[in-house]
């Protein structure tokens, strides 16, 4: 059997140590857990900066800006057109830099400009789309013809009744008595079934994560054993 590289064995061992350190919190809070937690936070921040610089700042800002500035100063080109291209690169850069004004109390108000710009664009783009995707289409899905097999009709009726009763539970402008009270009561039952299903899936999800970590520990153990044997 080929001997694993010592570097890989050491990195795996360090990762296994961090996994066990995090697990140790299940017993009680301790310095190993805190060490692992701080390493995760520190490395994540550094990783973010490196990835953002290489995949975003360089690609989408520095390179196009440099290219357009070089073209601008090349004689014979359409000056105004090139100027507009450079401005299109400079404006977002300046907007981004304004975010750092928050570090200087005297001019921190300037950081509101890029935030306002971003909020306005997001609101403009999202309002009609969100309404369509998350409200209108969902309402449409409850307006279904009751036809087909008995089972299908039963399922469709459950959707219609469930939606109406669920909404009735959140209707607070009238006391939950009489018909509305009954509907609200059914609504809460339906909500509870929904929560139960979500909880079941959450348990599966968490067990999956534990399986993933155990699988890693088993791989690490095999790697170390193979290295020692080789």
């Amino acid at each position: 059997m080929e001997s694993p590289d010592l570097g890989i064995v050491l990195w795996y061992t360090f990762a296994a140590f961090l996994t066990l350190s995090i697990f140790s919190f299940l017993y009680k809070d301790n310095p190993f857990y805190r060490l692992a937690e701080h390493i995760v936070v520190g490395i994540s921040a550094g990783y973010w900066i490196a990835i953002l610089y290489h995949t975003s700042l360089q690609d989408l800002w520095i390179e196009p800006l440099t290219k357009n500035v070089l073209v601008l100063f090349t004689p014979g080109g359409p000056f105004l057109l090139e100027c507009s291209r450079v401005l299109i690169n400079i404006i977002p850069g300046v907007m981004g830099l304004l975010m750092f004004s928050r570090f200087f109390p005297g001019i921190s108000w300037l950081s509101r400009w890029p935030i306002a710009f971003y909020l306005a664009i997001t609101a403009g783009v999202n309002l009609p789309l969100y309404l369509q995707s998350f409200t209108v289409r969902q309402m449409q899905a409850t307006m279904i013809p009751l036809e087909g097999s008995t089972w299908k009709i039963f399922c469709d009726v459950t959707i219609i009744v469930g939606t109406i009763c669920g909404l009735a539970y959140f209707y607070f402008s009238k006391k939950h008595k009489g018909v509305l009270g009954g509907m609200a009561k059914l609504g809460i039952w339906i909500l509870m079934i929904g929560f139960g299903s979500t909880f079941g899936y959450t348990v599966m999800s968490r067990i999956s994560l534990l399986i993933g970590r155990f699988r890693f520990l088993i791989d690490w153990f095999n790697l170390v054993v193979n290295y020692i044997k080789a």
Binding site: T198, Y201, S205, S208
Partner: peptide, 23 residues
Amino acid sequence: GVMVSDYYTFLSSGQIFGLIGGL
């Protein structure tokens, strides 16, 4: 798995044609 039950509504509305949940 945690997200699956939230997205069944998009399946019944036809916005997605399939849903694969967790492990």
